[in-house]
Write a protein that binds this DNA or RNA. Structure first.
Lengths: 129, 129
DNA sequence: ATTTGACTTCGAGTGCACTCGAAGTCGTAC
DNA sequence: GTACGACTTCGAGTGCACTCGAAGTCAAAT
């Protein structure tokens, strides 16, 4: 059940894993680590059923993860989101400071990559001689 | 002894730590993990004395680290370097494939950052309203 | 009725990269 | 000569983010 138009898709954990590129273990881990904005619905009184909103949330936190935000910061962000609209400024501040760290890290990585490129160029001159 | 013109600077481990931004513990760890192309000279029959070449090597491997190369790959690269000039093609291949991974990761991070930027813009519209 | 497969919880284990603490040595300063 | 500070080795510990295995449940298929 991956392709659907219905508003409440109600995907299984393996569907969500397939959609997000996470493993089912990681999805359970994120949930119990408090990264998933509230309880996930259950079907058959035990199997998780993810709504489209749940999946969108998971996708967003994978963006935070892939830019290096630690689990505890994502938990903090999630807690703020759970508290309601009045935490919008705090969430904004959190994201903005994260963005600054990411930009700095990207710049650093790019500088390092230039050094590596230079080394590669040296090796290429050496081997094609 | 940080500023010197002599060809053999012979820096202490804390000098190198200050110069590279690594800790002395990390420098010892890197050495015993086989990332340091040969033995480091010793003074006083026990204290490490780093040559300028040693420091340049350390600086380069910090570039590999900051672009996410695992310790074991750096060790492999170092082993190749120790074996001599005939391993130049292998070292080149290793760096080129690392560069590809880094470029892919940078692109991924930039895409994630765009999503975060978009979220920030949404929050800003919400809060300045 | 039993088998299958996808799920469930829980706690323990893994891999990585450091990081620390204890106990000892050595050369210079007082 | 002793106190100090910077180093030494060694093994153990830390923090992070998963990842796995065991034992059990449940609904649909044969």
């Amino acid at each position: 059940m991956t392709i659907t138009d219905s508003p409440a898709a109600a995907l299984s954990i393996s569907d969500v894993a397939a959609d997000t590129g996470l493993t089912t273990s990681t999805l359970r881990y994120y949930e119990q680590a408090g990264l998933l904005r509230g309880q996930i619905d259950r079907a058959s009184s035990s199997h998780r059923r993810y709504t489209d909103d749940d999946v969108r949330w998971v996708v967003f936190i994978t963006k935070l993860r892939s830019t290096g935000m630690p689990i505890r910061d994502i938990r903090r962000y999630t807690e703020l989101a759970r508290e309601g609209d009045h935490t919008t400024p705090a969430r904004l501040a959190l994201l903005v400071s994260h963005r600054e760290r990411v930009q700095a890290q990207l710049a650093d990585m790019q500088r390092s990559l230039e050094t590596i490129d230079f080394k590669i160029a040296t090796y290429e001159r050496f081997t094609t001689r």
